[in-house]
Lab assay of single mutants.
Amino acid sequence: MSRVPSPPPPAEMSSGPVAESWCYTQIKVVKFSYMWTINNFSFCREEMGEVIKSSTFSSGANDKLKWCLRVNPKGLDEESKDYLSLYLLLVSCPKSEVRAKFKFSILNAKGEETKAMESQRAYRFVQGKDWGFKKFIRRDFLLDEANGLLPDDKLTLFCEVSVVQDSVNISGQNTMNMVKVPECRLADELGGLWENSRFTDCCLCVAGQEFQAHKAILAARSPVFSAMFEHEMEESKKNRVEINDVEPEVFKEMMCFIYTGKAPNLDKMADDLLAAADKYALERLKVMCEDALCSNLSVENAAEILILADLHSADQLKTQAVDFINYHASDVLETSGWKSMVVSHPHLVAEAYRSLASAQCPFLGPPRKRLKQS
């Protein structure tokens, strides 16, 4: 649940008159999402009104509101027999009622949201009550392989729920002597030191190019640089560091992050930047690179990204790559990247197969709970 924001200063709310007192009302909304995959969808019983329910879910471990999704594969009634019906059901509720908006969509073979439908307002739910769409999607369109909505005969539904909580009022009075504290510009100011090479005390040599930097900042941000300058190493004695395995453009992006906490060109060089972040123990930059690479996972590059993640101990990226390969196994196994990995990294192939087997055979063990970014 997000923290209630402070109200904007009255002088910034309007260029008009300023009242002596004010009130700011925040209506709290808890948002969460749920993904439900139905394997072997074409084998569902086709009687009209037949119901399939998901397991229950909530916004978190401490949330007492429990929900589930309900599907009628062949419609709810005679009117909707040519459609799939989809509903959000409130299973248990400690209150007399709650209000919530919802959005349903289908994830296609690429994991993209399609055929989205959402409620136009927050509906009133009581325990045992459901709301949804009797005519969510035509069955003939859903079952047509050309539309790519049932890869490997799996129907994957994605649901986003927004639950309306209580409202909170914050009130106060205006004073004539309003003090406005300026925003912190530390990142910009440190970035200026790097860009202008002011007050530098060490030189970093990268592929024949020299960059002036500040030992204190490098040591504070990177345990690797800290070790170089702290001990009686040649880098500490000469205040000069030779860097041979990072390209200059990648190095500059890494230094921008060290000084400012930002990497504006990360998406263009996420793979190389991940390697640099791993070498210099820049954990936050490493996770930022993992996130960017996750966003660009595809059938063509899944094997290469899995190898990269394994090489640099990028655990979150590795998990996402394995899950992606499992979901698109029939396509990924035909790529040149996968065939190369079979020869060069057989242990990763074995890991992917083990994960695929456990996903398809849940009876082999208890269900695993899916539970950071600093």
Rank of each mutant, 00 (worst) to 15 (best):
M341G: 05
M255N: 11
R284Y: 06
A19L: 03
L218Y: 10
K66Y: 10
P362N: 15
T175A: 02
S2I: 09
D82T: 08
A116Q: 08
G337N: 03
K95F: 15
R45N: 12
R284T: 09
R368K: 15
E46K: 02
K286F: 02
N108A: 15
V71W: 12
D166N: 12
K101D: 15
S374A: 12
R185V: 03
L317C: 09
K129W: 14
E112T: 09
S358Q: 03
R139F: 10
L311D: 08
S171M: 04
S298Q: 11
L204D: 00
M178T: 02
P10V: 06
P248C: 05
C68S: 05
G60S: 11
D272G: 06
F125R: 02
A352R: 02
N169W: 02
I170P: 01
G111D: 12
C159V: 14
L273M: 02
E195F: 07
V332N: 00
K74Y: 14
E118V: 05
E160R: 04
E232D: 09
Y123D: 01
L142V: 14
L282D: 03
S222M: 15
L86D: 00
R139Y: 07
D82R: 10
N196L: 01
V91N: 11
E47Y: 03
R121L: 11
V161I: 10
V224A: 15
G337P: 04
K134V: 04
L193V: 02
D201W: 00
L204W: 08
G261Q: 10
E79L: 12
Q316R: 06
S298N: 04
E118L: 09
V287H: 03
M228A: 09
K339R: 06
H214A: 08
N108K: 15
K129E: 15
E97K: 12
V71N: 13
E232G: 11
E334D: 09
V224W: 09
C256F: 10
R139V: 11
G128A: 15
G132C: 00
Y327D: 09
K74A: 09
E160G: 04
S162I: 08
L84T: 06
R124G: 14
G365T: 12
L308P: 01
V18M: 15
R370N: 03
I258T: 01
I325C: 06
N301D: 12
I137L: 13
K101A: 10
F225P: 00
V71G: 14
L297P: 01
T335P: 00
T37W: 03
S330I: 12
D331I: 12
Y259E: 01
Q127Y: 12
S222H: 00
R70D: 07
L186G: 02
L157C: 11
E12I: 09
T200L: 14
V163R: 14
Y34L: 03
A314I: 05
T260W: 05
H312C: 02
F43W: 11
F257E: 05
L348E: 01
A302C: 03
V241F: 03
R99M: 14
H214Q: 09
F102V: 00
E235H: 06
E46M: 12
E232F: 03
S344V: 11
S6M: 09
N72M: 06
S58A: 12
I38W: 04
E183W: 06
D166Q: 10
D291F: 13
K66F: 06
G192E: 13
E78P: 07
K81E: 10
C44L: 05
I52K: 03
K110C: 10
K279V: 06
A277S: 05
L311P: 01
E78T: 14
C44P: 09
K286E: 02
V126E: 02
K66V: 05
A270V: 05
P366V: 10
E47D: 06
P17A: 10
C203F: 12
R221S: 06
C184Y: 05
S42Q: 02
N196M: 13
P7E: 12
Q165M: 13
D245P: 06
D153E: 12
A357Q: 03
R198Y: 15
D63P: 15
M1R: 00
R370G: 03
V98P: 15
V224Q: 11
I217D: 00
S55P: 01
D271S: 06
I27P: 03
M255C: 07
H347L: 03
Q26I: 04
K95I: 05
W22M: 09
A357V: 03
M48K: 02
D130R: 12
R368W: 10
L150Y: 07
D291S: 10
T200R: 13
F158L: 11
L193M: 05
L274F: 09
I27Y: 14
S295F: 07
D267A: 08
E78A: 04
F125Y: 13
D315E: 05
A213W: 07
A302P: 00
W22Q: 01
K238H: 10
E12T: 10
A303H: 07
Q360N: 15
R45D: 13
C203I: 07
S105Y: 13
K135P: 15
P9D: 06
N177H: 04
E247T: 06
K74E: 14
W194L: 06
V98R: 12
M178G: 05
I27G: 14
E300Y: 05
L65A: 12
W194H: 06
F104A: 01
A100S: 14
M255S: 10
F133Y: 12
A61C: 07
D315V: 04
N174K: 01
R99W: 10
K262E: 07
K154Y: 12
D323T: 08
A227E: 05
F104R: 00
L293E: 13
V349P: 06
K101V: 09
R138I: 13
D310G: 06
F136E: 01
H214R: 00
I258K: 00
K115Y: 06
F141L: 07
L204R: 00
T37Q: 04
P73G: 13
A122K: 12
N174S: 02
L218R: 00
I325R: 00
M1C: 00
W194M: 12
G132F: 00
F41H: 07
P73Y: 03
C289T: 04
P223K: 10
E234C: 15
V4A: 00
L142E: 04
L157I: 10
N147D: 05
E12K: 09
K252S: 09
L142A: 12
A219T: 08
D152G: 07
S313Y: 10
Y280E: 00
F104P: 00
N301K: 08
V163L: 14
F136Y: 10
C205D: 14
M341T: 04
A187D: 06
P182G: 07
F141D: 09
R198L: 14
